[in-house]
Simulated scan of single mutants.
Amino acid sequence: MKLNLNIQPLSTWISSDKQPLVIGGPCSAETEDQLVATAHLLAKTGKITALRAGIWKPRTRPGEFEGIGSIGLKWLDRAKQETGLPTAVEVATAKHVEEALAAGVDILWVGARSTANPFTVQEIADALKGVDVPVMVKNPVNPDLSLWIGALERINNAGITKLAGIHRGFSSYEKSAFRNEPMWDMAIALKTHVPELPIINDPSHICGNRDLIPYIAQKALDMDMQGLMIESHIDPSVAWTDAKQQLTPAALADLIDRLTLRKPETSNKEVSNALDQLRENIDKIDDIIFQKVSERMKIVEKIGNYKKDNGITILQVNRWDEILQKRTAFAKALSLNTDFAERLLELMHSESIRKQTEIMGVAQAEGQAQENLTHV
């Protein structure tokens, strides 16, 4: 379902002459010299659209560096005056909003921890009423699309039309190479609900490791995201926060030069016609797939009724193991990714269990109703 949000195009509120659009700067403003020197080096590359810096840092545990605080806003303003770069800051309270705006900050963003708390988002939204400022909303820490959408709606309802989402990945119990799992499907789902919403990718927080940033940055652009937010420090080895995921300004410029920009559409009519034909073929195959899935589910219903009538449990583990082994082997022989095949099978199996449970539940409800009648 598409949402009707009032959103201005990204090009109306942030310079888009640099491609790709990159918001860069240190994870944290540590000292005035560190911030201003980093800003000058970033501006000198000619690759940066806006300067970011963490002023207030929500840390997981007390005792860690929680940001330099309001004094950092003066440093940020100095960097802006000297380099001409617009500035961006994270805000987590109404007071943060007020102080950032008073200091002339150009762009605000709501962090992942804040997005997860509707009370916090509403407090920020209330502080933004009557203000014309761009606001970017990071995805919540956990993969909850409704929380992300809800935060965007609250900010939009406050009258903010210069709005964007930031995809920074999601926490996961599963260990992987990434600090936060990209879960690209969540960003795609957001774009499906709000097609006009610009989405900026934050590869620094997804990766947690500077070596992985080029891969994620390129994939984000290939997924038609409108820009990148990448952390950059004059000397990452001595950074007070997130040292491993920050790049030097020179390394960031080199990364940007190596990125390949692609267009969502082509003006080449021959290519466009070929793509249309291939998409038409996919549509036909999708129709067949859904017809076959429907046929499969009708058989599942018959199986459910047999099990109900003969007192057989819904789940037979041996049968499920047999399906997994045979079908994944077949998928591999067809050059399909086995992980994809497993996920597809699990999805269909889950729906099969749901339908059979529904059949069993109806039978149980009918039996209870009949028993109640005999006692009337």
Rank of each mutant, 00 (worst) to 15 (best):
K2N: 13
L3K: 12
N4H: 13
I7R: 09
L10D: 07
T12F: 06
I14T: 12
I14D: 08
D17F: 09
P26W: 13
E30C: 08
L35H: 03
A37F: 09
A37N: 12
H40W: 04
R52N: 03
I55S: 05
I55Y: 08
P58N: 03
R59M: 04
R59C: 02
R59W: 04
P62L: 02
E66S: 11
E66C: 06
I68L: 02
W75I: 02
W75M: 04
L76W: 03
D77W: 05
K80P: 02
K80M: 02
Q81R: 15
T83K: 01
G84R: 01
V89L: 01
E98M: 00
E99W: 00
L101Q: 01
V105D: 02
V110K: 00
A112I: 02
A116P: 05
P118H: 09
A125T: 12
K129I: 12
G130D: 11
G130F: 12
V131S: 10
K138I: 05
N142W: 14
D144H: 06
L145I: 07
W148E: 01
G150W: 07
N156G: 05
N156P: 03
K162G: 03
L163D: 00
L163Q: 00
A164P: 01
G165Y: 02
F170S: 03
Y173T: 07
P182V: 00
D185G: 06
D185I: 08
M186D: 04
A187G: 09
A189R: 11
K191I: 01
V194D: 01
I199A: 01
I200V: 05
D202P: 04
S204M: 04
S204H: 06
I206G: 05
C207Q: 01
G208L: 04
R210N: 11
R210L: 06
D211Y: 13
K219T: 13
A220R: 10
A220G: 13
M223R: 15
G227I: 11
I230Y: 14
H233Y: 07
D235C: 09
V238A: 08
A239D: 06
A251W: 02
A251G: 08
L252C: 06
L252H: 07
L252R: 07
D254H: 08
I256E: 00
D257W: 00
R262Y: 01
K263R: 10
T266S: 09
S272G: 06
L275P: 01
I288S: 14
I288H: 11
Q291C: 09
Q291P: 04
E295D: 15
R296T: 14
M297A: 10
I299K: 12
V300S: 09
Y306N: 13
Y306F: 13
K308V: 10
E322L: 08
I323W: 12
L324F: 14
Q325V: 15
R327V: 11
A329T: 15
A329S: 15
A329R: 14
F330Y: 15
A331Y: 07
A331D: 10
S335N: 14
S335Y: 13
L336F: 13
N337A: 06
T338V: 12
T338Q: 11
D339A: 11
R343I: 12
E351W: 12
K355Y: 15
G361D: 03
Q364C: 05
Q364R: 12
A365F: 07
E371V: 06
N372T: 13
T374K: 13
T374W: 12
H375Q: 14
